[in-house]
């Protein structure tokens, strides 16, 4: 039995000195990363950090509250377009625009949460899917949002600093990611988070204990959409150009895959899942230039599939990896971690 000395130990951020050590080590590593690696990897890190933010938010909804969303690319788009438009039209400073756009996404999340009060499982999935598709259609057909031509992001100033390179942006992005991670973790350890989990586990019982289902379900959607909105606003400045084609259904499914591959209902799982899938996504784009494997895949695809099969063979490999992960580790990376931890706890016995 683990001994606890105070009641607060159950909820505190750092449960032991070891955890503090690793946290500080991680922060140091993140701080020095741009000096240790090539510029391309800073870009990869930015891409990962944004996906971590979205996966965290989606996990609050899917993993902790037990609702589903196939429309998170919609919130992501609202965050991206909201930030850019607020900056160009109203001359808002970046951080204010980002916050405002994320709040707009949260408002949409609240409205999307309303049908969730009556819908469950596959029915809710279809409703949220409809939302995601609608958002891209509306944006794509409206001149205000730049239509199919898309929008260029304005120059990025944060206070007196002019952020031009990936490295500059990295130092803005990482603190935001760390803050949102700690926020999500605090949230699930306190009253509101417990209400979320209670709804997932037994909603009737939660209601009879005083949890307002209407409020907490819509709140979970709003918080989740807020995270996606922040992610979207930041993503616009990684790409420096946004168009409706980016925010597809595939993107929503990728977000969901990050949560599931990482481990449902786990903060650490979201982080690992988002990093792994972002990395795979970026690396598999170059799969054909890998020596031997690339050639082999190309021959394979040319002899058995049409020539066009070559261009998206990355998705086939991607899908295959996802199937394998789910087949051998249904709990995702989290499951592997739990087993390793249990193994070493009793090692060498």
């Amino acid at each position: 039995m683990d001994m606890k000395r105070s009641y607060y130990e159950d909820v505190q951020l750092f449960t032991s000195g070891v955890v503090v050590f690793w946290f500080v080590a991680l922060l140091l590593f993140l701080g020095l990363l741009p000096f240790l690696f090539k510029n391309y990897y800073v870009y990869v890190a930015n891409y990962m950090a944004i996906n971590v933010i979205v996966a965290l938010g989606l996990n609050l909804l899917v993993g902790y509250t037990g609702q589903i969303s196939l429309g998170h690319a919609g919130f992501f788009a609202i965050g991206a377009y909201g930030t850019v438009i607020l900056m160009t039209l109203l001359r808002c400073p970046f951080l204010l625009a980002l916050l405002a756009a994320a709040l707009i996404a949260a408002l949409f999340g609240f409205f999307l949460g309303l049908p969730a009060l009556r819908l469950e499982g596959p029915y809710l999935a279809i409703a949220t899917l409809g939302f995601g598709l609608t958002i891209t259609q509306v944006i794509g057909r409206s001149e205000f949002f730049g239509g199919r031509q898309g929008l260029h992001t304005p120059e990025l100033w944060v206070g007196p600093w002019h952020l031009t390179t990936d490295r500059d942006f990295y130092y803005l992005l990482i603190p935001i990611t760390v803050m949102l991670t700690v926020a999500a973790r605090n949230l699930i350890k306190t009253r509101v988070g417990r209400a979320f989990i209670a709804i997932r586990e037994a909603d009737i019982a939660a209601a009879t204990m005083g949890v307002n289902l209407v409020f907490y379900k819509t709140l979970a959607f709003a918080v989740s959409a807020f995270y996606a909105g922040v992610g979207g606003g930041l993503y616009a400045f990684v790409l420096r150009f946004i168009e409706p084609e980016i925010f597809t259904l595939l993107m929503s499914i990728m977000f969901l895959a990050m949560v599931i591959v990482g481990g449902i209902g786990s903060i650490m799982g979201s982080i690992v899942g988002a990093c792994l899938l972002s990395w795979m996504d970026l690396q598999l784009r170059n799969i054909l230039s890998i020596p031997y494997l690339g050639d082999w895949l190309e021959t394979l695809s040319q002899s058995y599939f049409s020539i066009t099969g070559v261009s998206n063979i990355q998705y086939i490999v991607f899908g295959l990896i996802l199937i394998l992960i789910m087949l051998f580790e249904p709990l995702g990376i989290l499951g592997i971690w739990l087993r390793t931890k249990r193994y070493w706890k009793t090692w060498p016995f």
Partner: peptide, 19 residues
């Protein structure tokens, strides 16, 4: 969770549990 009704921490206070 049984204490839910007697507790007051909302979203923002929960997120701001610093210590």
């Amino acid at each position: 969770l049984g204490r839910h009704l007697h507790m007051k921490s909302n979203l923002f206070r929960g997120v701001g549990m610093w210590g």
